[in-house]
């Protein structure tokens, strides 16, 4: 459990946006702005945040679908950002993605069997009968049956399609699986089935998960440790128990308070955050959360708080608790 699998250091990703026709005005979106993150073998690291906080970009960079502006990503102690060619191909065998939308992430013109087996062909792993057998096995592992191999995505329900996406991710025996909102497009009853499947697969194949979601209930149920992101930065990170019991950061508290509780006798605390998430084009100075923060102090306007240990490995970036 304590072996480091992935070590992200000082990761930044800036997107340049040209606004205005011909004027050539350029502005910078700081999608990821200095993220340090460690993922250990066999654990599930949950990454929560609202839309636009950079969580998806982080997942895409880790899988090298996107190149960062600066920083390093060490996978088994090697900086994967320096990889190219054969090395990169090998790395991608080890890191696989599960996507949010089971409708748009499967090629509608390929059969389920072809989708799941495609990567085996690309990496030249198994051939002919053996590959067929492996694909059929994978289908069964994710709870589909081998008779469905010849069917096309439109013949499956949303939950079944997500199972195909999971089988595809598992085909190459990866060590790290990045699941980007894997259940948000699914109905409640199907969501629970997929979450259980992900847990079973983790135990069976020794998988490590980077589990990205906006749903605090789902993340709490799935993760060992949880990192909360706001405007491209991690503002709090700790094990799941203390995140829900003793949240430090006012943003985490507000997120937790905003989740509707399925119990009418519990009245939600009205610390409803005012305003919207600021644009990452011109993020607020100092602590990026200060315009929405109910506990703002003068220092928050100018000086950005660091992510510090508040005791017992509970990290938070907030002046209030310093």
């Amino acid at each position: 459990m304590n072996d480091l699998l992935l070590d992200i250091r000082g990761l930044k990703k800036y997107f340049i946006i040209r606004s205005g026709f011909l004027s050539g005005r350029r502005s910078v979106v700081k999608a990821i702005d200095g993220v340090d993150l460690q993922i250990f073998k066999g654990e599930t690291l949950g990454l929560v945040g609202e839309s636009g906080c950079g969580k998806t970009t982080l997942g895409r960079i880790v899988s090298r679908l996107e190149e960062p502006t600066s920083g390093a990503i060490l996978f088994n102690d090697e900086n994967v950002l320096l990889y190219g060619g054969e090395q990169l191909k090998n790395f991608r065998r080890n890191v696989q993605l599960i996507f949010q939308d089971p409708y748009s992430s499967l090629n509608p013109r390929m059969s389920a069997g072809a989708i799941v087996g495609e990567s085996l062909g690309i990496h030249n792993i198994l051939k002919g009968k053996e590959r067929e057998e492996r694909v059929a096995k994978l289908m069964e592992v994710v709870g589909l049956n081998r008779e469905q191999l010849g069917r096309y995505p439109h013949e499956f329900s949303g939950g079944q399609r997500q199972r195909i996406g999971i089988a595809r991710a598992l085909a190459l025996n990866p060590s790290l699986v990045i699941a980007d909102e894997p259940v948000s497009a699914l109905d409640v009853s199907i969501q629970a089935q997929i979450l259980n499947l992900l847990k079973d697969l983790q135990a069976e194949f020794d998988l490590t998960y980077l589990f990205i979601s906006h749903d605090l209930g789902v993340v709490g149920h799935m993760s060992d440790r949880i990192a909360v992101m706001y405007l491209g930065k991690i503002v709090e990170m700790t094990d799941r128990k203390s995140l829900y019991k003793t949240p430090y950061h006012p943003y985490t508290k507000a997120l937790l308070a905003a989740v509707p509780v399925p119990n009418p006798s519990v009245k939600r605390e009205k610390t409803v955050l005012k305003g919207d998430i600021p644009s990452p084009i011109n993020p607020p100075s100092g602590c990026a959360f200060h315009p929405r923060c109910p506990f703002r102090m003068d220092i928050c306007d100018t000086i950005e708080p660091e992510l510090l240990d508040k005791g017992g490995g509970h990290l938070a970036a907030c002046h209030l608790s310093n």
Binding site: A192, L216, G217, G220, V259, P262, N263
Partner: peptide
């Protein structure tokens, strides 16, 4: 079947 933030299980 809905994961609830009020009932985060001890056992992952």
């Amino acid at each position: 079947s809905t994961p609830n933030i009020g009932e985060i299980p001890d056992d992952k």
